[in-house]
Nucleic acid binder design. Structure first.
Length: 729
DNA sequence: CATTTATAAATTTTT
DNA sequence: TTTATAAATG
């Protein structure tokens, strides 16, 4: 496509943003105003102007967003060129840069990245080692500790302030919490393991304090940042450091769509941007191309009640006589039934399932609907909520891969060893010591607060002795020790441990002491490909899973899927970090692989729906307590963010929008009962807002007693009797 | 020291 | 319902 033709498709504001030259540019882009298109065109335009593609850095909120923008840029110019652009999330880019330049800040290139639940496990470990687990007064649980820690570092706010404002219940524990954090950071550095926050912190340090980092920063002639309203203090500092010498920066965002303050995002970042970068040019995009006028009117009405005025008012030329609908249902069952009905009706009319989405505040809100969809054989794909890699069995395999990649990763070793029957925490600890997993000098880490170090020493420690020649490293590696001098294990665990040892060493093609000598001379066996390694590890896990999980078949299928994913990779470290930083978000339990490129309905949390759009959007559970969520109502700011969240949900719709309100909620959270409460309509649906909706009241649905229910007793009898009638095979 | 059993507690959003 | 901890048992 020629330059002139695609520039001609932009409106004057978009075009100004695309053609802006050097310096700082702030684009305030309302929902549906062609933000993605503008960024993609700007990237294409920069390249066409002669900027080297690998001198462009595009920071986005998800990998999906980066991929989409670069794909679009590629269509305008040359896909090969667009592919050279550095695109990804802050975390993914940090990971990539630190693999190359990490040594400057004390990181060995094979550091591993752990996700939030791994981090919580580490917290738990240090917590119990410090003897804080069992006391009269309740000490924060591991998830809470991570939340406190993450808020402290991401907001760059003193611990005491964080506790005072967000976790008042634990204010008295400040000193102990500080000890836990000390031990936590020390532990991570010793093992060359980074959590999500570390990726940002190390990146910041890299470009602020090292020559290598400064050179890397200056290589980027242009930096572009998407969803700037959802960046936090550390990310803002990274940008400042990145642009200390080369000042070309372009950020895009919408203060009305800031929905990540729980991750310490600061709307202030976008509002203060012109002060941070003097001479900033501001462009505002206000024409919405996505939604029909009535949908936009309803969305705007929700925002009009916000305390804070926002910087723009959206308008649309897409006229329509169809108002958004507010559907009153008797209960959840009515809601699910109606959605199924409408979704299928839409499909009859030619709207594909993937053009329709159901949005909700919390992941579990879709539980009932999921069951209903499954029952009716309507395929769907769920975004948000429990991720594939968070499932215990996937973590098991990932831990094995991590051990291979970073043999000093104690947490992964721990997980791997505890899988063995007859091995508990104590034995695991001893085995790890025998293997030399702990790379720090003896006595370096201690339980108890006495050996506390001065605050300055928390920061990244020296690179481990790994910088020596690889050969000598190998001889000292725990895996080499595992091959040459396997530690003794309790008799109950001998076989299981041997199996583990065999699996790990096979993956590295290390010969075991006591193996028959290799036949092909003294040439070393070559290391198997990654897919083969994963397959080997899966075979190792198979018998363990059969004993441990009752639904082991489903779980094993997940591992096969992992194997398929792995076959697309050549580097193990790449696979591990991609799985941690950009996890596939479905398990095969429901969204089976068979219809991966088939048509399916989208189910998504509102957070995960950010940046997406669909022809028809269904927003469910619009009751007070769900939207806004009860959990967020402790302060006014929380309420305001819930309002923006609701706004984000509504503005995802192109042609059709329906908001559902089930009146009755049953208490079957923990067990079944007929008791129920009556819900209140979401407080965001005030009279003036409702005036812009068409209200429909749905008839009571006769809850269809599941046909299979009648057959259930017989099925149960058959299954039971098979236990004693069928001979074991 | 590992494992089983009893008892109590919690319950959003995501890189 | 699940998930974590404490006490009892092997």
């Amino acid at each position: 496509m020629s330059t002139a033709s695609w520039l001609g498709e932009l409106n004057p504001q978009q075009r100004a943003a695309v053609e802006f030259g050097d310096g700082a540019l702030l684009i305030i882009a309302g929902a549906g105003t062609g933000k993605t298109k503008t960024l993609a065109c700007r990237v294409a335009h920069l390249i066409e102007r002669g900027v080297a593609p690998d001198g462009i850095l595009l920071l986005t909120f998800t990998r999906r967003a980066a991929a989409e923008m670069l794909h679009r840029a590629g269509q305008l110019i040359d896909p090969q060129l667009a592919a050279q652009v550095w695109g990804g999330t802050f975390h993914a880019i940090a990971n990539r840069l630190l693999r190359t330049y990490g040594r400057a800040v004390g990181l060995s290139p094979d550091f591993t990245v752990m996700d939030q639940s791994d981090a919580a496990d580490v917290m738990n470990l240090v917590r119990s080692e410090l003897g804080l687990a069992s006391r009269e007064r309740r000490f924060p649980r591991k998830e809470t500790l991570i939340a406190i820690y993450s808020r402290t570092v991401n907001a760059q706010e003193p611990l005491t302030d964080v506790l005072a404002t967000r976790f008042p219940a634990y204010q008295r524990d400040a000193a102990d919490i500080a000890n836990v954090f000390d031990a936590y950071t020390r532990r991570k550095t010793a093992q060359q393991v980074l959590d999500y926050d570390d990726l940002l912190l190390f990146w910041e340090m890299l470009c602020q304090e090292t020559d290598a980092g400064r050179r890397a920063a200056d290589r980027f002639a242009h930096v572009l940042v998407d969803e700037y309203q959802d960046t936090n203090a550390v990310q803002a500092r990274i940008l400042r450091a990145l642009r200390a010498r080369v000042g070309n920066i372009c950020v895009v965002g919408d203060d009305a769509q800031s929905i990540y303050s729980f991750r310490a995002a600061e709307v202030r970042n976008i509002l203060d941007f012109p002060n941070e970068f003097p001479g900033t040019q501001i462009v505002t995009l206000e024409q919405n191309y996505r939604s029909t006028q009535p949908i936009l009117a309803a969305s705007n009405a929700v925002m009009e009640q916000a305390r804070q005025r926002y910087t723009k008012i959206l308008w649309s030329q897409r006229a329509s006589r169809q108002l958004p609908q507010l559907a009153h249902c008797t209960d959840e069952a009515g809601q699910s039934a109606e959605i199924c009905r409408r979704v299928l009706a839409n499909r009859e009319r030619g709207v594909a399932l993937r053009q329709q989405a159901v949005l909700f505040r919390a992941s579990h809100h879709s539980a009932h609907l999921e069951i209903e969809l499954t029952r009716r054989n309507i395929p769907f794909h769920k975004y948000g909520g429990l991720k594939f890699v968070e499932a215990a069995h996937v973590k098991d395999l990932l831990a094995l891969l991590r051990v291979l990649e970073n043999p000093h990763d104690e947490i992964s070793w721990f997980r791997v060893l505890l899988m063995l029957d007859g091995v508990g925490p104590r034995t695991a600890r001893r085995i790890m010591d025998d293997l030399g997993v702990r790379s720090t000098s003896p006595g370096a880490d201690v339980a108890g607060g006495d050996s506390r170090e001065p605050p300055g020493s928390v920061a990244p420690v020296v690179a481990a002795p790994e910088s020596a020649a690889p050969a000598s490293e190998a001889s000292r590696s725990p895996l080499a020790t595992l091959a040459s001098a396997p530690p003794a294990v309790p008799s109950a665990a001998i076989d299981a441990f041997a199996a583990l040892r065999g699996a790990l060493l096979d993956c590295l093609a290390i010969e075991r002491a006591g193996d028959p000598p290799e036949t092909d001379g003294d040439r070393r066996r070559s290391a198997p490909t990654l897919a083969v390694q994963v397959e080997r590890l899966r075979r190792y896990l198979e018998p363990i899973f059969r004993l441990r999980y009752d639904n082991s078949i489903i779980r094993l299928r997940d591992l096969e899927q992992l194997e398929r994913i792995a076959s697309g990779y050549s580097s193990r470290s790449r696979l591990i970090s991609d799985l941690t930083l950009d996890p596939p978000n479905s398990t095969s339990e429901l969204a089976g692989a068979p219809w991966i490129d088939d048509d399916y309905l989208i189910l998504s949390t509102i957070h995960s729906a950010k940046g997406c759009e669909w022809t028809a959007v269904h927003v469910i559970h619009a009751s007070d307590g769900n939207i806004p969520s009860d959990m967020a109502l402790s302060d006014d700011e929380g309420l305001e963010e819930e309002r923006r969240l609701f706004y984000v949900a509504l503005t995802r719709a192109k042609d059709q929008l329906c908001v559902y309100f089930p009146l009755r909620y049953y208490y079957h959270r923990f067990g079944m009962s007929d008791r129920h409460t009556y819900a209140q309509l979401s407080r965001f649906l005030t009279a003036p807002v409702r005036a812009l909706f068409e209200e429909v009241t749905l008839p009571v649905v006769e809850q269809p007693l599941d046909e299979s229910a009648a057959e259930a007793p017989q099925a149960l009898r058959t299954r039971l009797s098979s236990l004693w009638r069928t001979p074991p095979t």
